[in-house]
Structures are given as C-alpha cells and as structure tokens.
Design a protein around this nucleic acid. Structure first.
Lengths: 158, 158
DNA sequence: CCTTCTTGGGTGACACATCACCCATCGACC
DNA sequence: GGTCGATGGGTGATGTGTCACCCAAGAAGG
C-alpha cells in the first residue's frame, strides 16, 4: 500500500528517526573525538586502517578500498595529514606511479591513544543503549541497504 | 562480557555495517539529489522545512529547532542559499533582532519538483529493502540513541 | 614501434561544517 | 536609570567532501 508519492506514518517516523540519529551521532562523535584526541573522524579512519597493518603502511588504492572512499577525497585527506605530520607518502618500489602511505611516529602515537578512547565512546553512546537483538537487526538491515546501493551504476571515479 | 577495551565480533560487525551504510547512503543520496534536482541535501532540508509552512516562512531560530542544526551552520547555509536565490531574509516585524526566512518563487518551484523525486528515491534505495519489522526496530533504536545523546552536556551553541 | 585504453594518483575550485568570537537587543534585578 | 546575563543572529578562518579535469605509466592490439 502507499506505493509511492508519499510516506506512510510508519515509514516517515523510522526514516526521520534514522536520519536524525545518524546526523546527530556523527556530529557528536566527531566533536568528542576532536576534543579527546585531536583527531577528526576522517583522520581516525585513515590512521586506524594503517595501524591495523603489520608495517603500518598501505598503497593508496588499498587504503581506498578498505575505506570505501573516492579517489580525490583520500588524496586530499592524505595531503592534509602529511602537513600535520600524521602520515607520510613514499614512492612505491615496484610500481613507479604507486604511492605508499605510512604512519609517522606521531601518527602512530596519536592513534594508539585514540583507539581505546573511541571504542569506549562508541560503547557508551551507542552499543550500551541497543539490545543484542536490535544490534543484529541493524547489521542485517545495513548490509541489505549496502547491497542494494551497490546495484546501481557507479560514478566511475571509485 | 567484554565490558570494555575491545568490541566483540557481533558488535564490531553491526557497528561497521551501520557506519558504512550510513556514509555510503548519505553520499549516494546527495549525489542523486544534486543530479536530479540541483539541490544539495542541506538545501533540501531547509527548503522542505519552509515548504511545509503555510506561509513558506520561518524565524531563523524556529528553522534551527526543526532542523536540529547549530547556529553558524544554518546562518552560513542561508547566506549561500540567498545568493542562489532560493530563499530570502526579511526583517522581523515584532522583534528587531529577528530574521524571517522565506522561500522565493524559484525556491518554491525547486522544492516542489524535488520532493516527489526524493521520496521515490528514498523508497527505492532504502524503504524497499527493509521489512516493516526491521523498520520499527530501527525507529526504536534510533530514538533510544538520540535520547542517550541528549543526556550529555550540550556545546552551548545550539 | 605506435596508437589507444585503463589504472594509480593528483590539482583547483567550490560547497559544506565547525570553531572561536562578535554585536545588538531583550529582560531582570538593583 | 544602569548593569548584566540570556537570546537572536552574524563573521572569518579552517577543515572536509565533491566535481571536473589532468598527467604519467602500464597493457593490449595492430
């Protein structure tokens, strides 16, 4: 029922709640992270991904795949992080056009401090107020939406 | 179990799926909206809120409450939209410091075209792949997280 | 060898979001 | 009437995300 044109009350409520929650949460999370650790969410994403690597290093395109970011976004982000001394760019041995991105000592220290704080934060503001059953539903739902998004055409940049 | 420090597999999966979905969805949604209607998500939020008003007009602070935005964000957004001719600022009759924000004819036309397209889009990429039960769970979950967020201290700007 | 396509990466301009800070007016209290 | 905090709104700088576009080095085919 109500196949198009407008949203039913049930749908409207859920969509609005989700949108609002998601925005507020991201804003709140970013602020908290910035205050506690001096890192933005974008910094955190990049640093923690490198950090999980044995040698704290990744090719740019590998980093891009793990983060699911677009080219330009990552390029700009890396450039900013280089000026802040969090990561460094190194030429790639086996591919002349390739670039390696590596954690600097400063970046390593920053992310090492930030991770436990951030995990504790996520638990406090999110995981602690969600039941396990809700959590599972959210996971299934999220994966379904992601799958469905992938079905469309890609913007050819990624 | 696993009270802190690290996330369990169940938690990690759900959190990651949610984060990824939310980011991808917002990006995808913004791009779609921009292509189909020339409006950004921020534009859409402002315009549709004004549009729902009888006189297509709101005080800035009322707009702020409905959108749950911060002061500066809305001020800047309105300024940009004024230069684009989507809305206009008018002095407020009863309060010398107040400002009224009103839809321009161009803004009205844009949002009138955009709303059905956007609703149809939301249905296609989101609502259609989520079961009613999942949707209800999402609503409850979102409202719980929102509630919990509000419990902390506010940054005094809002 | 020479074109042509793809891939890895980058740049500059611009929209958006946040921070620190400012100004004017209202309202309350003395 | 004068001070003072709260309220409504704004500015400038900086960080972040996206778009359009560019360049160099492989890869594929003739």
């Amino acid at each position: 029922m109500n196949g198009s044109g407008e949203l039913g009350e049930r749908e409207r409520r859920a969509w609005y709640a989700f949108l609002t929650m998601q925005e507020d949460l991201r804003r709140h999370m970013n602020r908290q992270l910035l205050q506690d650790t001096g890192l933005s969410l974008a910094d955190y994403a990049v640093l923690s991904t490198l950090w999980m690597q044995d040698d704290n290093t990744l090719r740019v395109y590998e980093l891009r795949e793990r983060l699911r970011w677009e080219k330009t976004r990552l390029t700009h982000q890396i450039s900013r992080m280089v000026t802040r001394g969090q990561v460094e760019r190194n030429p790639c041995a086996d591919d002349p056009r390739g670039q390696q991105v590596a954690l600097t000592p400063a970046g390593h220290e920053a992310i090492t401090k930030a991770v436990p704080l951030h995990i504790e934060y996520v638990r406090r503001v999110f995981l602690d107020v969600v039941t396990p059953r809700q959590l599972d539903t959210l996971a299934v739902l999220s994966e379904a939406v992601l799958d469905n998004l992938g079905t469309g055409e890609d913007p050819a940049d990624t």
